[in-house]
């Protein structure tokens, strides 16, 4: 009798009615549900209407197609993707992601200027790259008088050390590295997120294709 005043309990039992009709409950659930049904007229009514609904669906007349769907001739099968195309796609993806990471890294200040052009420069461009690298190094020397001056003039050593300490987090040795700002971090993060989204989107598309 108490069950009648507990709507939550009714809801739980009613959720079991559908699998009960299909014989998909275990023995304990069946026993509890049947016990409840014996004492609860509304739930009994629910079960009866649910059973009738299923009965109606099962006796729906079957519609037949007007024609057959056999294939008269071999349909034009989409040509399988050639292996080299997969290779090129993979290479493009890798290049795109590497580029994004490079940009992100550059914005974050984790790559030095020397590191950037090194991997792809062939023999023809090696000279250019070298000369390009030389300039910033020279620039860096002229822009960094503190260390040079510190060696020459011991009187300014304390000031120079303080300066060097202040500069230390942003710059290492003689490299001229862009300072990290919040904006650059945000941009780097955005690019990295974009690369990840691209990756996931490609995977999803591929999965969908596989499912047809």
């Amino acid at each position: 009798m108490f069950e009648r005043f507990s709507p939550g309990r009714h809801r739980r039992f009613r959720a079991l009615l559908s699998p009960y009709l299909d014989g998909r409950l275990d023995d304990v659930q069946v026993r509890r549900l049947e016990q409840h049904l014996r004492t609860c007229a509304p739930c009994q009514g629910e079960m009866q209407t649910l059973r009738d609904t299923v009965g109606l669906l099962r006796s729906l007349p079957r519609a037949l197609p007007r024609r057959s769907f056999t294939l008269a001739e071999r349909p034009a099968v989409l040509p399988p993707t050639p292996a080299y195309l997969w290779g090129m796609r993979a290479a493009t993806s890798v290049a795109a992601i590497a580029l994004m990471l490079l940009f992100a890294g550059d914005f974050l200040g984790t790559f030095s200027r020397e590191a950037a052009p090194a991997p792809d420069s062939g023999p023809a461009t090696a000279q250019e790259a070298k000369s390009a690298l030389a300039e910033p190094q020279e620039g860096a020397k002229t822009q960094e008088p503190p260390s040079a001056m510190a060696a020459e003039d011991p009187s300014t050593q304390i000031e120079d050390e303080a300066f060097a300490q202040a500069a230390a987090p942003g710059a290492t040795d003689e490299e001229d590295v862009l300072p990290t700002t919040a904006l650059e971090v945000a941009l780097g993060g955005l690019l990295a997120a974009l690369a990840l989204i691209t990756l996931f989107a490609t995977r999803r598309l591929r999965r969908r294709r596989a499912m047809l």
Binding site: S59, P61, R62, L64, R66
Partner: peptide, 12 residues
């Protein structure tokens, strides 16, 4: 659509 049973059962 056309239907399968020309002689439907009482349920159908």
């Amino acid at each position: 659509a056309p239907w399968a049973s020309p002689d439907p059962s009482p349920e159908e």
